[in-house]
Write a protein that binds this DNA or RNA. Structure first.
Lengths: 152, 152
DNA sequence: GGTGAAATCTACCTAGG
DNA sequence: CCTAGGTAGATTTCACC
């Protein structure tokens, strides 16, 4: 039920590249392919591995602008919160949203084609939302360390 | 060279689940497995797909605390920036780092086992760094929309 | 767009502690 | 009796037609 060093190495390897075969994993962990495959199946079944995803290149898809937005709510009713959360889940350009401690109520992570699209999102979607009081956009200038694996 | 609607559907599907076979993709796109596989190979070769990764469950790994930190630099020399960037790439609990427009110089995304570990990072690593002036931690209270696929 | 060889996965079987 | 290693059938991939 607990993770031994081999499990951690296996998880780290699959975070970097999920196309590694049981043979590859066995080589890396000094065990037989059977054992490595069995371990992977166990880690999947126990829920350590949430899924296998393709990672895309934002630039190649015309998503030139990444941004973070801090959103402050005007009123903190339950209904407002539900509405806002539903909106974030509907908009595909919002690729992450969190509620945080501190002054801002929400942090949004956005991918857009250009600055105009970002502005449209703010002016047409966020600011018109009844519960939203203030939005502060912060555009990403450089990805210093983008989307690294979890520390296992 | 440009992406047609089938390409976009294929990329969206692989973002959700990269274990889909050429047959599965063919079924979803109403084309033969050969064609679907060929398209995938083309999108990989052209660089639209950066890689295939396993997504892990942070909670299962004992990573109970997610946080964002806004870091303000004391001095903006080239050397300071390089040092700081190297530090972020070294620390595994820093899973993302960006330079932003606005008052803060860096935004860091962190995964830690607990609040004590987070505090240790701030006190032992970030604040002692010669270039760092101020750090503002914002703990994630709720993941409203965590790590969604890119909008394709 | 289809076909077939090569590789991979997975369930089952056998051996050893 | 339980765990590790190996094996074979089914599935998938990929180069070629």
């Amino acid at each position: 039920m607990t993770l031994d060093p081999a499990d951690l190495k296996l998880l780290a390897a699959l975070q970097r590249d999920s196309t590694l075969t049981a043979q590859d994993l066995g080589d890396a962990l000094n065990m037989s392919p059977s054992q490595a495959g069995r371990r992977r199946q166990r880690l999947e079944a126990e829920g350590y591995i949430a899924g296998y995803r393709a990672t895309l290149n934002p630039e190649m898809l015309g998503l030139a602008v990444e941004a973070f937005m801090q959103v402050v709510m005007a009123t903190h009713t339950e209904q407002n919160a539900r509405d806002f959360v539903r909106m974030t889940r509907t908009r595909p350009e919002i690729v992450g949203a969190w509620t945080l401690t501190g002054e801002a109520d929400y942090l949004l992570r956005i991918y857009c084609a250009n600055l105009a699209a970002l502005n449209t999102l703010v002016q047409q979607v966020l600011l018109p939302h009844p519960a939203v009081s203030r939005v502060q956009s912060q555009i990403v200038m450089e990805r210093v360390k983008p989307d690294a694996p979890l520390p296992v």
